[in-house]
């Protein structure tokens, strides 16, 4: 027996490996930003996040690389997921990236480093452990906001 009450109904399904591959590239980009203290890595990543956050993670340059280069090499059944969870993660990523850019622009080096380090940790968790940021954060945000 199964029953769904006022549940959020399903959205578009995408290849679940795409966003995870994107997170792997994101990890490398943030690692480079942290090692070199170069804000331009973060600026490029922020552009990618903006596309992912507002148009969808399946439309980013990373998703394009995945489709053209990686996907043809993969065999077996395609695991799918709804597009909303990775899109939420892209929005959180964009927030971290913007904070880092503001830190760099205003000379707050520590703010830049902390924001990049947190973004690096989140991207790595997503790539290596399939960590679902929306699962852990969204409800806590909602609970905190409407207390």
């Amino acid at each position: 027996m199964s029953q769904v009450t006022n549940s959020a109904k399903s959205s578009t399904l995408i290849d679940a490996r795409g966003p995870r591959f994107g997170a792997a590239i994101t990890t490398v980009v943030f690692a480079a930003a942290l090692a070199t203290n170069n804000v331009w890595f973060v600026v490029v990543q922020a552009v990618v996040f903006t596309i992912g956050a507002f148009k969808g993670p399946q439309f980013t340059p990373y998703a394009f690389i995945y489709k053209k280069v990686v996907k043809p090499l993969l065999k077996g059944e395609v695991p799918t997921e709804e597009v909303k969870p990775p899109q939420f993660a892209q929005k959180v990523g964009l927030l971290f990236a913007v904070v880092a850019i503001v830190g760099a622009a205003t000379g707050l080096d520590l703010l830049f480093s902390v924001a990049v380090a947190m973004a690096l940790g989140a991207a790595f968790l997503n790539a290596a452990f399939n960590f679902c940021l929306g699962c852990e954060m969204y409800l806590l945000l909602l609970r905190a906001r409407s207390k």
Binding site: S7, A16, E81, K84, P85, A89, C132, G134, C135, Y138
Partner: peptide, 13 residues
């Protein structure tokens, strides 16, 4: 309990 931005909710269902 599920939410809109939750990947494993669908698999759990």
């Amino acid at each position: 309990f599920s939410s809109a931005f939750c990947g494993p909710c669908r698999a759990t269902r």
